[in-house]
Simulated assay, not measured.
Amino acid sequence: MCEELTLRDTTRQIGSSKFPAANDPLGEILHQLRLDGSLYCRSTLFGDWSLAMPVLTGKMMFHIISHGQCWLTIEGEAPQLLKQGSLVLVPHGLGHSLCRDPGLEATPLFEAGIKQVSERYETLQMGEESEGELTELTCGLISFDQFAAKQLIQMLPPLIMLETLAQSKSRWLNASLDLIAAEARQLKPGGETIITHLADILVIQLIRHWLEESPEANQGWLGALRDKHLGIALRAIHHQPQKNWTVDSLARECGMSRSGFSAHFTSLVGNTVKNYLTHWRMNLAYQRLQKKSEPLIILAEEFGYSSEAAFSRAFKRVMGVSPSQIGSSLL
């Protein structure tokens, strides 16, 4: 993955307080997904089979159907037939089932006889070749970081499927799926790294496909990112959270009156400008503190607070715990 920039590095690179409208306003958010391929499993399944996937809070799961077909069922959604070449993402870690037939009783995944090949790679076989048709799956469990990425993932639907693309896109998609399937079967040196990077690309492609095709992607926070005025204000907050932003200064950045900007922001984002700015700063600070313990006065200054006390009060109000409690957990 790309090396992360510090807040100071980012601020130096921007250099100016003016943020022109981006050609790809969601590109930065997709970049910040920084997926961490936690675990991959290649499954070889014969005849009648059914697997129950557990609830995995804070994780995403994806499934690639490399041979045969199966059904996916998830609570509140109609069963979905996944044909060979299908790619599906369960963004919120919801429990779900994969099965040859929806009427079959599901075996919990962790009781199905998974074999660990390495720290990040597992295999599973259910049934024998003589028992019926073959289904091959590659499944992945992915975690993610960054507050912006979490904002985006919260807005995704329970299930995202990709079955058909324009011919120009389907060629590279099919080639990527074939390469993942080949690497999963052969387990050559470096195969896990190849699978991890290709899977990251496929997951981001799935999310991008939803962003391009779904009407819901033009609403709320995502709609605000694409808005020609609010997008500028949001990028200003995201790039320079340490700056002394006010409703007036942000309204000037995006060329709107104070009242018009404030009303439009609240209507689309679902939060006031001041609350959004505070929550953004505190979540960034929380992520920093989770990685390493830092003097609170430094964090206070970097996130636009004149004193450690003011920063600590805002942090506890938003996060529910004091910043010192987060830092002490690392000791």
Rank of each mutant, 00 (worst) to 15 (best):
T123C: 04
Q69D: 07
M256F: 08
Q240S: 13
G255W: 07
L35K: 04
E119C: 03
G260C: 13
G270D: 01
Y286N: 07
K316M: 10
T57P: 04
T6A: 11
I298G: 04
P241N: 11
G223S: 08
T164G: 03
T272H: 04
Q186Y: 08
R258Y: 03
E213M: 14
E105W: 04
N174S: 13
W280K: 05
A52W: 01
L156I: 10
Q154W: 10
F147N: 11
S38W: 07
H96P: 03
W49F: 15
V321P: 00
N174F: 10
V321I: 15
E105H: 11
D36F: 09
V90L: 07
F315G: 03
R8M: 11
V247Y: 01
K292W: 01
A224W: 07
P25F: 09
L39Y: 05
R171V: 15
F303A: 07
S306H: 12
I297P: 01
L206H: 01
Q325L: 14
E183I: 04
Q240D: 05
A22R: 15
D200A: 13
K169H: 13
G320Y: 06
C41H: 02
A263E: 12
Q219G: 00
T138N: 03
W245E: 03
K243H: 13
T57E: 08
F62K: 04
H279T: 13
P25T: 09
E105Y: 08
M319A: 02
Q242K: 14
E119A: 14
E308S: 14
L165G: 06
Q146R: 15
K291I: 07
Q290N: 15
R252Q: 14
G68F: 07
P20T: 09
R208G: 04
K18G: 01
V321Y: 05
E136M: 13
I298T: 15
S176Y: 04
G127D: 08
S97R: 15
W210R: 10
L277A: 12
W71T: 05
I29M: 12
V90A: 06
L33N: 02
G270P: 02
S306P: 01
A181G: 07
F147P: 00
L109M: 12
R120F: 05
I298W: 04
F144I: 06
T278P: 00
P91E: 03
V90E: 06
Q205I: 07
H264E: 09
M161T: 13
Q167K: 15
Q84T: 12
L72F: 00
A236N: 10
A184Q: 05
R171P: 00
A181T: 08
I204P: 00
L206K: 02
V88K: 02
S262Q: 11
I232T: 09
D227L: 09
A224C: 10
F265S: 06
A263L: 15
L177Y: 03
T11S: 11
D101K: 13
D227Y: 09
R12G: 00
S38C: 09
G37K: 03
I142S: 08
L124Y: 06
A310V: 06
S214C: 09
K18A: 08
Q84I: 05
R252M: 12
V318N: 02
V321C: 10
S324T: 14
I180N: 06
E302V: 05
Q84D: 00
R12T: 08
L211D: 01
E216V: 10
G304P: 07
K188S: 09
A52P: 00
G127N: 11
K59S: 05
L198K: 08
E192Y: 03
G103N: 12
S43N: 00
R235L: 03
C99T: 14
Q146T: 09
